[in-house]
């Protein structure tokens, strides 16, 4: 799910930027530093939408750098266990398939794909029901439920399932 939240960060600025454009320098540095990063707590920072306040700067001993506490609003993407969302399939193999929902990768193991769907290898590997009516392959859109998340310093990775009511393929790229 996407959220609009307020975060705070201490920004260090080199003395050469002190002057009329200090604020602009600070904000462009903030965007460069923060946008595109990921933390386990807040998820992926997609875009900064505004700066709420810039606090008083504090000179660091010995370096001359100044630290400013900056409060900013941003759009973040944070997946939650139990959340249901839509995703695009990016890779299919006999272990299951990978899907992407915005910046996050989700793996759906073949144990969490309905039992009536069988893996078919070939140049377009896919999972298909025995009657051939439903097919999951690269670029399919699926609705899945996140059942687990793994967080490391710079990435969030999810495990999902489509073995539940109202989950599974939304549309099949071959039928459009």
């Amino acid at each position: 799910m996407f959220f609009h939240i307020v975060l705070e960060r201490n920004m260090q600025l080199h003395p050469r930027h002190f002057g009329r454009n200090l604020r602009e320098h600070l904000i462009s540095k903030l965007m460069k530093d923060v946008e595109g990063t990921c933390s386990g707590r807040h998820g992926f920072v997609v875009a900064i939408t505004g700066v709420e306040s810039i606090g008083k700067g504090l000179i660091r001993d010995g370096t001359g750098f100044v630290t400013f506490p900056v409060k900013y609003q941003c759009v973040v993407f944070r997946p939650f266990k139990g959340e249901i969302l839509e995703a695009v399939v990016t890779m299919v193999n006999k272990m299951g398939f990978f899907a992407e929902a915005g910046p996050v990768q989700i793996f759906v193991s073949n144990h969490l794909i309905p039992d009536d769907m069988e893996f078919q290898s070939g140049d377009m590997p896919n999972y298909t029901t025995s009657d051939g009516s439903v097919k999951i392959q690269k670029d399919s859109e699926v609705r899945l439920k996140i059942i687990g998340t793994r967080v490391d310093a710079t990435e969030i990775f999810c495990i999902g399932t489509i073995k539940d009511d109202f989950l599974g393929v939304i549309n099949d790229p071959t039928t459009i």
Binding site: M1, F2, F3, I5, K81, G82, I84, I146, T149
Partner: peptide
């Protein structure tokens, strides 16, 4: 954490969600 029971942490529960 469990979104099905709306357990998403206080910080996110009070935050503005976006469609």
């Amino acid at each position: 954490e469990n979104a099905a029971e709306l357990k998403i942490g206080d910080e996110f529960l009070k935050a503005k969600c976006l469609m």
